[in-house]
Write a protein that binds this DNA or RNA. Structure first.
Lengths: 217, 217
DNA sequence: TTTGGTATAAGGGTATACCCCTAGTATATT
DNA sequence: AATATACTAGGGGTATACCCTTATACCAAA
């Protein structure tokens, strides 16, 4: 079942210029015919829900509002006979790629791919396969490891320690934190000491930087 | 001098898909003919230097490497008879727009503009005019004010104070900073006091947050 | 030439951060 | 029942941060 019939494609991108560009680009490819297009995930979802089984492959940008490409994919894949979803993105952003995988996207193509690669990706997912641009794979892996690391580090800190860290970042002294939490200043100091030890920081300044790095501030 | 002759255009975008898309898009417009294209600023600059007076309008993306669209524009505008430069961007990012203005770009079109708007922009800059997408203007203004504020705050701090702030963020104590800068611990403490006073912070923690906010860390 | 800003330095004082130690209580986990 | 972990709390000590005031030297702008 290579390409006996032409593939029905639905295009989604919030930038009209790119949308029109992709249309022109793919218009010359006989194995693909474009059913329609939308400028955001919500609009696309409405069309696809109203016309099920019409579209084989959905080619969607990720950055959109309302409803980005990943959320659209998640919604589509909940259905009984979902179309194949091929996501397009500007960036080789690992978080996005991870999101795409979680959303069960059938493929992920970066925009600095060529026309040939795009067409190959469309054909591949249309045939029930997957297509992820080669270059993103190492990036996902690295970022994935890093994220795992962050979560592990956060898990070390107890709820109380996180609470106190938050107050430290708010420029509160140990005395103020103690009053606020109805505990002794000494207890706060114990938590501080544990925070320093667990995070391997030399001083409160390190804790603040740590909080920033983990996005707690 | 409306459009007696067709406009010679040079296209630059690092994403082949978008580049090819734009080509297809503009190919149908009789008032414009595409001379050539490049995938980054450096490549474009080389071509344009080798072939001066050939190109009337340069339509360039901003995010590129090596040499982004703004730097390319700056370089081009240094020359005797520079082409008109129309910049394209994904984002209505104020910093970029400001950069474009500083670089003396003749226009700035966001990618969620339509084909008609793009052609209008090209024609307008080809005729010696300028074209900035309507929607970005309020955003520039707001961000511009904010930036001015940031710069004003930064300007308050003397070079020495910035130097010491950087060391504070690196978790150095006053004694360590003093040793490192071959000055007295007391002097460092004076600088700290001035930093706290100028930034209206309560403690070193505030200074660290301040440094983060201003992108110094 | 005076004025103002910057950088330097010092003495003296209090509050805070951080170090060492011990130790009770509650809640899970095994 | 025993063990582990989190949270609580104390005593005692040193280093650091931060507050007050005063003071000198340099340089540039008014």
């Amino acid at each position: 079942m290579e390409e006996n019939k032409s593939i029905s494609l639905f295009l989604i991108d919030d930038h009209p210029l790119i949308l029109e560009g992709l249309k022109s680009l793919l218009a010359t490819e006989p194995s693909i015919h474009i059913i329609g297009s939308a400028q955001n995930g919500l609009e696309a979802l409405n069309f696809l829900n109203a016309n099920p089984t019409l579209v084989q492959v959905v080619l969607s940008d990720i950055d959109m509002d309302p409803m980005n490409g990943i959320d659209l994919c998640t919604e589509l894949k909940k259905q009984a006979n979902p179309p194949q979803v091929l996501l397009l993105s500007m960036h080789s952003n690992a978080v996005m790629v991870k999101g795409a995988i979680v959303a069960e996207a059938d493929g992920y193509v970066v925009k600095n791919a060529g026309k040939d690669e795009l067409i190959k990706a469309i054909q591949q997912v249309a045939n029930g396969g997957t297509y992820y641009s080669q270059e993103i794979i190492p990036i996902i892996y690295a970022q994935y490891q890093k994220e795992k690391q962050n979560h592990k580090e956060l898990a070390i800190l107890t709820p109380r320690e996180l609470e106190i860290l938050a107050l430290i970042v708010k420029e509160q002294t140990s005395n103020q934190i103690a009053e606020q939490l109805f505990i002794s200043r000494k207890t706060v100091e114990v938590h501080r000491a544990n925070l320093l030890q667990k995070t391997a920081c030399k001083s409160t300044i390190g804790l603040v930087k740590y909080a920033f790095k983990l996005g707690l501030a």
